[in-house]
């Protein structure tokens, strides 16, 4: 039996660091959220109780707009990425040549800095000179204003997200498929099942648990959408692509309305932690 003091010697440095740099900042932010503190003006910090939260829920259309955009964004990108990822994983799970080459190739978008991804796409989608816009124009879509029509821009951002994160679903699902025993498929094949039957009745049920985990992971991550908005649209046109992260950032670091920004970030935090709770239950390790 090892000594009691030793085990805390191992655990405490990391734990204390998290306390100081994660728990303490969040608690501070919670206390600030009950204050009115517009740091851009000389007005002092005053305690206002739950005023900020009342304002968020009852008279801040911009908050509701950003929440609606973010939820729609997450719902669409996660479903498209899951479907495309499933298709690709299914294809590469067959004995296809160059499988490892493709595995590495498809991983590149996720490894690149998101802000660089955003600026590359900003260039590709530039209304006057972007190559993607020019190609689409030559296909007869020259009346479509991709980055200036508020009805379309959200979907342009989603397309970039799908470019960046479909590989995540695909590589996760492929890794899971590869861990299934081959004997399973053989048995189904002997019984005369067709390719689609095998997928639907054997592979899919086995994949379901990992699919739920991947969807939760991706949804939580997509919910924090910031860089693509910052780099491609700046929240515009109007506020049509303003995500929760970006709106909170704008209030905090452009308007310096710090009390209100902290209140916003706590509403945001609670939403994310509810989702995270489901995920943590699935990831929980028996130690």
């Amino acid at each position: 039996m090892r000594k009691e003091a030793t085990k805390f010697g191992f655990l405490l440095p990391g734990l204390l660091y998290l306390m100081a740099m994660a728990v303490f900042p969040l608690i501070w932010s919670l206390t600030l959220s009950f204050h009115r503190w517009k740091a851009a003006t000389a007005a002092p910090r005053v305690f206002v109780g739950i005023e900020n939260f009342l304002n968020i829920f009852s008279r801040d259309p911009r908050f509701w707009n950003s929440l609606r955009f973010t939820v729609l964004y997450v719902a669409i990108v996660v479903s498209v990425e899951l479907s495309l990822g499933l298709l690709l994983a299914y294809i590469l799970n067959e004995r296809i040549r160059f499988r490892n080459f493709f595995r590495v190739l498809f991983l590149l978008p996720m490894a690149a800095p998101p802000i660089a991804v955003a600026f590359m796409w900003r260039m590709l989608l530039n209304p006057d000179a972007g190559i993607v816009v020019k190609i689409l124009n030559s296909m007869g879509l020259n009346m479509v204003r991709w980055l200036t029509d508020a009805r379309l821009t959200p979907f342009v951002l989603m397309a970039v997200d799908i470019w960046e994160w479909t590989p995540f679903m695909f590589l996760g699902l492929l890794a899971a498929m590869q861990s299934f025993p081959v004997s399973l498929y053989d048995a189904a094949q002997v019984d005369g099942a067709s390719r689609l039957q095998i997928f639907w009745f054997v592979t899919f049920p086995l994949l379901l648990p990992i699919m739920v985990t991947l969807v939760l992971l991706r949804a939580i991550d997509a919910f924090k959408l910031f860089e693509l908005v910052f780099g491609i649209t700046g929240g515009g046109p109007g506020t049509s692509t303003e995500s929760l992260s970006y709106y909170t950032y704008t209030v905090g670091f452009q308007y310096f309305d710090l009390g209100y920004a902290c209140a916003l970030s706590w509403v945001f935090l609670v939403i994310v932690l509810i989702m995270a709770n489901f995920l943590l239950k699935r990831l929980r390790k028996e130690v």
């Binding site: 932010s29 905090g252 994310v272």
Partner: peptide
């Protein structure tokens, strides 16, 4: 899992 913006202000 929490959003980075939540700690960015503090």
């Amino acid at each position: 899992m929490f959003p980075p913006i939540a700690v960015a202000i503090p």
